[in-house]
Amino acid sequence: MTNDIVLRVENLWKSYGKLQVLRGVSFTVRRGEVKVIIGPSGSGKSTLLRCINLLVRPDKGRIELEGHEVFPRPSMSISKIRERIGFVFQQFNLFMHLTALDNVRIGLIKVKKMSKEEATKKAIEALRMVGIDESLWNKYPAQLSGGQQQRVAIARAIAMEPSIILMDEPTSALDPELVGEVLKVIEKLAKQRKTMLIVTHELDFALEAADEIMVLDHGVIVEKGTPEEILRHPKHERTRKFIERIARRTQI
């Protein structure tokens, strides 16, 4: 059963100077699971995701990916670890000098060392999957809407066939009318049982797609449970208030 665990995070700590951002975070993600993290701004959500793919170095704790140690003693090169962890950023971060197609292809060619034909085939498959059709393949990021850019960014991540995909508020930089198209793509990935860890405040989406919601507050997971439990019957007063606040904001 343990080999079913894709990501294991144990007692993770991180401070910036005096500011303790993560204070002993532990959880696991199993294959095919979708876990959602919610929590107030500044609670350490981004830092947590960035520790997992080592964009930020944790201070203490342990991270394992498919049974291989990632931190503190990486059992393979850091780039190999990152290759196996997809990352979708709030600000998309598409490569500005590359077309949509090349954005998806570049990792396949430069990192996975695929031939150009093979990479093109795979990239097109991924772009189709996120609903980016042929007319957009040769457009540069600046020529795409935010929703299109984020879908290309998702295609770039899934084309690499990572063991897990981390998403950091994938829809919060989008105009409200573009949020739906991106959530639809993420829901589709969830239905295909892609393993994902998603920071989001889209509660309807979480209710629909998440197997579990974890609530992060001041660097600690204060509660976790099924979406029903967390959203309808939160144990903590702070959680309840926080959820009400987001719910109000998204209804308006």
Binding site: S79, E83, G86, F87, F89, N93, F95, G107, V111
Partner: peptide, 12 residues
Amino acid sequence: GQWEAALSLGMS
């Protein structure tokens, strides 16, 4: 973010 996206893909 350009740099971080490149590293996240597994580039050295």
